[in-house]
């Protein structure tokens, strides 16, 4: 976790609040692409159950990988899921 002061602050922000936010968005967004299953509950129940695991993976990745790459990967994952959510909500409104 060595680096300049700015890098350290960004690492802290990324691993702390941003990863928590990313977890929430990825969890909610994955309910839109996961298969529903016969009981029609798997798509939204499994992400909630796996919430701690999603967070843990993102958290350790954010502290262990190169800062730039970790930021980009987490940003892309979050953005894709945020876009899915936005598209779904817009469709629901129409």
């Amino acid at each position: 976790m060595a680096g300049t002061r700015t890098e350290k602050i960004w690492r802290f922000v990324l691993a702390g609040p941003l990863v928590l936010l990313a977890t929430l968005i990825i969890m909610a967004g994955s309910s839109l692409w996961l298969p529903e299953g016969q009981a029609q509950v798997n798509n939204f129940v499994i992400p909630v159950v796996l919430l701690p695991a999603i967070w843990a993976v993102l958290f350790f990745y954010s502290v262990l990988d190169r800062l730039g790459r970790a930021s980009v990967v987490i940003f892309i994952l979050t953005a894709v899921h945020a876009a899915l959510i936005a598209q779904h909500l817009l469709q629901a409104q129409q």
Binding site: L24, M27, N43, F44, P47, V48, V49, L51
Partner: peptide, 17 residues
């Protein structure tokens, strides 16, 4: 899981799905 599901995961899922 129990804490976070109750605090915001279930409301978030209800909102999105």
């Amino acid at each position: 899981f129990y804490s976070l599901a109750g605090a915001f995961a279930i409301p978030a899922i209800a909102m999105v799905a």
